[in-house]
C-alpha cells in the first residue's frame, strides 16, 4: 500500500503533493506552546513535506498588532514562498485599520486574519476598510470561530457583503457542526478550516460528505498545535486520496491563485 496514510505511517515526508497550511501563527500563544522561530517552522515543514504556511502573529489577540505584522513580514522575507502572511488589525478606528491593511498588503501579505477575542464582532465598522481591500484583492480572510451561532451569523453577513473574498472559518466543526455546514452550503465563498486540537473522529469525512472536499481546507494552528498532529485528521479520514490532496493542497492553491491573479491584473 502506498496511500498517503500508509506513507505517513512510515513517517515519510509527503513532499510531492504541495501541502499548504492556511492557519499558522508566529509569536507566543500562551497555552504552553513553544515560541518557535521561523527557521524552526521551516524545519518542521520540511520534515513533514509541507510546502508553505500562511501565518498571522499571535498579537492578533493582544495589544500592538502592528508589531506582530512586522515580525511576520520579516519571516516572509527570510523564507519567501514558504511563509506567507495574514495582516492582523485591532479595530481601534477604521483609519488605523485601513492604514495597516494597505501598508502590509503592499508589502506582499496574502490575506487578513481577524479574531474576536478582542470583544468586537466581525461586522464592526472599523474592520470595513480591511475587508473591502481583501474583497477587492480576492484575498482569504481567516476568521476565528468556535461554533457560536451569533458568530456564524456575522460570518454569513461578511460572506454576502464581500463576495470576492474567501472566508476561511477556523476550527470548523469544533462545535455546532450543522451550523458550519449550513453556512458553507449557503455561502459559496466560505471554506471550512479544520484546525481543531481534539480532532473529533469522522469530522473531516462528515464535512466532505456535506459540502464537498473542495470546500474543506487544511489549517494546523501551528505554533499552538502541531502540524504533524493536525495532518493526521485529514490523512486518517474516510475519504479518497484525491479528496485528501484537495484539502491539504489544491483548495489552498486555488485560493492563492486568485490572489496572485488579481495582483497581476492590478
Amino acid at each position: 500500500m502506498n496511500t498517503l496514510l500508509a506513507r505517513a505511517r512510515r513517517g515519510e515526508p509527503l513532499d510531492d503533493i504541495g501541502i499548504i497550511d492556511v492557519h499558522g501563527h508566529l509569536g507566543r500563544i500562551g497555552c504552553s506552546a513553544p515560541c518557535a522561530a521561523p527557521d524552526e517552522m521551516i524545519d518542521e515543514m520540511d520534515r513533514l513535506g509541507i510546502e508553505s504556511v500562511i501565518v498571522s502573529h499571535s498579537r492578533c489577540i493582544s495589544t500592538r498588532p502592528d508589531e506582530g505584522n512586522v515580525q511576520v513580514l520579516q519571516a516572509m522575507r527570510a523564507h519567501p514562498g514558504r511563509i506567507l502572511g495574514y495582516v492582523i488589525v485591532h479595530p481601534r478606528s477604521a483609519e488605523w485599520v485601513e492604514g495597516q491593511m494597505t501598508r502590509y498588503v503592499e508589502r506582499g501579505f496574502t490575506g487578513l486574519k481577524l479574531h474576536n477575542a478582542n470583544g468586537f464582532p466581525y461586522t464592526d465598522d472599523a474592520y470595513r476598510p480591511a475587508l473591502a481591500i481583501a474583497n477587492e484583492r480576492h484575498m482569504p480572510v481567516l476568521l476565528h470561530t468556535w461554533g457560536q451561532p451569533e458568530v456564524l451569523a456575522e460570518c454569513r453577513t461578511l460572506a454576502e457583503r464581500y463576495p470576492d473574498a474567501t472566508l476561511l472559518l477556523a476550527h470548523a466543526g469544533v462545535a455546532n457542526e450543522p451550523g458550519y455546514i449550513e453556512l458553507a452550503k449557503n455561502a459559496p465563498n466560505v471554506m471550512l478550516d479544520v484546525a481543531v486540537s481534539r480532532g473529533w473522529r469522522g469530522l473531516v469525512q462528515r464535512l466532505v460528505e456535506a459540502v464537498g472536499a473542495h470546500r474543506v481546507i487544511w489549517g494546523s494552528d501551528t505554533f499552538l498545535l502541531g502540524q504533524a498532529h493536525q495532518l493526521g485528521k485529514v490523512l486518517g479520514a474516510g475519504i479518497s486520496d484525491e479528496d485528501k490532496v484537495k484539502i491539504l493542497s489544491g483548495n489552498a492553491r486555488r485560493v492563492l491563485d486568485r490572489v496572485n491573479a488579481r495582483r497581476r491584473q492590478s
Binding site: 496514510l5 505517513a8 473529533w200 473522529r201 473531516v204 498532529h229 493526521g232 486518517g236 479520514a237
Partner: peptide, 18 residues
C-alpha cells in the same frame, strides 16, 4: 483516544516527531 479522536492524528504525531 478512540473513539473520541481521529486515531491517525496520534500516529502522525509520533511518526513525524523529531
Amino acid at each position: 483516544g478512540f473513539p473520541v479522536a481521529e486515531p491517525a492524528m496520534y500516529v502522525t504525531q509520533l511518526m513525524y516527531a523529531d
